[in-house]
């Protein structure tokens, strides 16, 4: 990302924050709802472990809490950043207003991907971080420094893969126009990521690792904190993220090239 693009995005984020804080009571209410949401996300986990044996597929309740925490962080980024932007892109394509974005002297993919932000939703990520920290504190063996360094890397790789996946899906709107519900479908599949992947059958696990790589976003960072991640797994995670990013970039370029502008 060039310096100019970076400054442009930063300015837009500042504006979004100021706009959100302007309606103080609304912002507070939104934040409160998000905080409730954090508690809410844990309830299914509690339901299951209430009836499950002490350890389920090698995961205790506290260890699963890590997965749920990472899932929340992911959801926060998705709802605060990825979703609003890419929904905006679909609108641009439908109305033909993408022209204005393409004309700006900043990489259009960057503008389209990060220009908007919904601050209240970002609180979900903060809540997720708190859950992860609580989970770490309750681990039987405290993670070593290596684990604490690798986990964020894996989380970032997961976020990159998620972003690539979304961009890939949304890029198809240049050809199919109406794809908003496709992102709803993706969100519902993503929901499988709130559970440790060890709970799933091998076939489903493979899908959640390579096709909709939500497993590597939530389970793998948790595995790293538990000290169960091998260096090869880290390489796999980075490879998946890189593949997603490159593929989506290529598809995006093709998509923009075939854009015909609805207005003119």
């Amino acid at each position: 990302m060039s310096g100019r693009a970076f400054r442009a995005i930063l300015a837009q984020w500042r504006a979004a924050w100021m706009a959100a804080l302007q309606y103080r009571s609304n912002f507070l209410a939104d934040t409160l709802v998000t905080a409730l949401w954090v508690g809410w996300t844990i309830v299914p986990l509690w339901f299951v472990f209430h009836r499950a044996p002490e350890r389920l597929a090698g995961w205790s309740y506290d260890e699963s809490l890590l997965v749920t925490g990472f899932f929340m962080m992911l959801q926060g980024v998705l709802e605060a950043l990825i979703e609003p932007n890419l929904r905006g892109l679909v609108e641009h394509v439908r109305h033909g207003t993408l022209d204005f974005v393409l004309l700006k002297p900043v990489d259009s993919q960057v503008l389209v991907s990060f220009g908007r932000v919904v601050p209240a939703k970002a609180m979900l990520s903060v809540g997720g971080l708190v859950v992860v920290l609580v989970g770490i504190a309750r681990l039987p063996v405290a993670p070593d420094l290596g684990a604490l360094l690798v986990a964020p890397v894996l989380l970032m790789a997961g976020l990159a893969a998620l972003y690539g996946l979304w961009l890939l899906v949304v890029s198809t709107s240049f050809w199919f126009v109406r794809v908003d519900n496709l992102s709803y479908l993706l969100t519902s599949i993503l929901d499988a990521g709130r559970w440790p992947m060890g709970l799933y059958r091998p076939a489903l696990r493979a899908i959640l690792t390579f096709v909709v790589p939500v497993g590597i976003m939530t389970t793998w960072p948790a595995l790293a904190l538990r000290g169960l991640m091998r260096p090869t797994d880290v390489a796999v995670s980075l490879t998946i993220a890189a593949t997603m990013l490159v593929t989506s970039r290529l598809v995006w370029r093709r998509a923009v090239a075939s854009y015909t502008s609805a207005s003119s």
């Binding site: 389920l56 709970l199 489903l204």
Partner: peptide, 9 residues
């Protein structure tokens, strides 16, 4: 998804 989880339980 819930079936997959409970099935494991």
């Amino acid at each position: 998804v819930m079936l997959a989880v409970w099935d494991r339980v």
